[in-house]
């Protein structure tokens, strides 16, 4: 694939900036013994810069696989992945793409701040510069004063904040999240949603998150892509229009949720 194919669509739209992410005809299957499982089939998706896009679908619809393909750690069997107008294979600024996992995945032998610094350690950087940026990231997620705490000393919500700080410390242009708050209790999850939206207001990074929770999708996203089960395809991309902050008891929000539920 070449540059031209990646920018093709954008030029026809006459947009000044290319989409943050563009997926074209993605296929992916896994082989298990002599059995081949088609996980993704002909997936097309365009994510504009600074948008928050939710990927929703039944389990086994290949949401996480799609996220892994966007992040470049997995190669599709067929199709194009474009990041900011560059083909995935040629894109070289992967440090500006962050990935937040389902679990907090903190290294237990590192303190909170050292865990945040971990994301900066792939490259060489002066030690105090790294510490300064990690401290700022912890401030951003409101964890000042807990720099030197080890993960076992923190609550689930705080660990999640450290993980968020770790994925923000590299100042990503794209933040990919794989059911990031699914392991938290309902109240903490709500706080993390507010947190994420507040930070998005500040940093304006593009966010793609996977969820199986319709309410979470509607609360956070500008657009929700609904995926069909195996083989996964994008059934529909739904614009979520109600203004933020959204309240799941409001009728326009509820109706959107119902619409999404019907699509899954």
């Amino acid at each position: 694939m070449n540059q031209a194919e990646c920018t093709q669509q954008t030029s026809s739209q006459a947009a000044p900036t290319p989409p943050a992410i563009r997926l074209g005809n993605i296929d992916k299957s896994f082989t298990n013994g002599n059995q081949t499982i088609e996980v993704l089939k002909n997936v097309n998706l365009t994510v504009s810069p600074q948008a928050i896009v939710g990927l929703i679908g039944a389990s086994g619809s290949g949401k996480s696989t799609l996220l892994n393909i966007i992040s470049g750690i997995m190669k599709p069997d067929r199709g194009q992945v474009c990041i900011y107008g560059a083909p995935s294979e040629e894109f070289n600024d992967w440090r500006s793409v962050s990935y937040m996992f389902q679990d907090d995945r903190l290294l237990p032998w590192r303190t909170a701040i050292r865990n945040v610094e971990f994301a900066l350690e792939a490259d060489s950087m002066p030690k105090n510069e790294r510490a300064r940026r990690a401290f700022e990231a912890l401030q951003l997620v409101e964890l000042e004063g807990f720099e030197d705490a080890f993960p076992y000393q923190l609550s689930g919500g705080m660990r999640s904040r450290v993980a968020l700080a770790r994925s923000l410390v590299t100042e990503p242009r794209i933040l990919l999240m794989d059911e990031p708050f699914s392991r938290l209790d309902a109240q903490t999850r709500m706080l993390m949603h507010e947190e994420l939206l507040r930070i998005h207001q500040l940093k304006r990074m593009t966010v793609v998150f996977v969820t199986h929770d319709v309410a979470e999708a509607v609360l956070l996203a500008d657009q929700v892509a609904v995926m069909s089960p195996r083989p996964g395809t994008i059934r529909e991309v739904v614009d979520i229009t109600p203004p933020r902050p959204r309240d799941i008891t409001r009728p326009e929000v509820t109706s959107t949720m119902q619409r999404l539920r019907a699509l899954i």
């Binding site: 923190l154 609550s155 705080m158 903490t188």
Partner: peptide
């Protein structure tokens, strides 16, 4: 941290 219950574990 906003959530006071979060502080107990620390």
């Amino acid at each position: 941290a906003k959530n006071s219950t979060e502080l107990i574990d620390a």
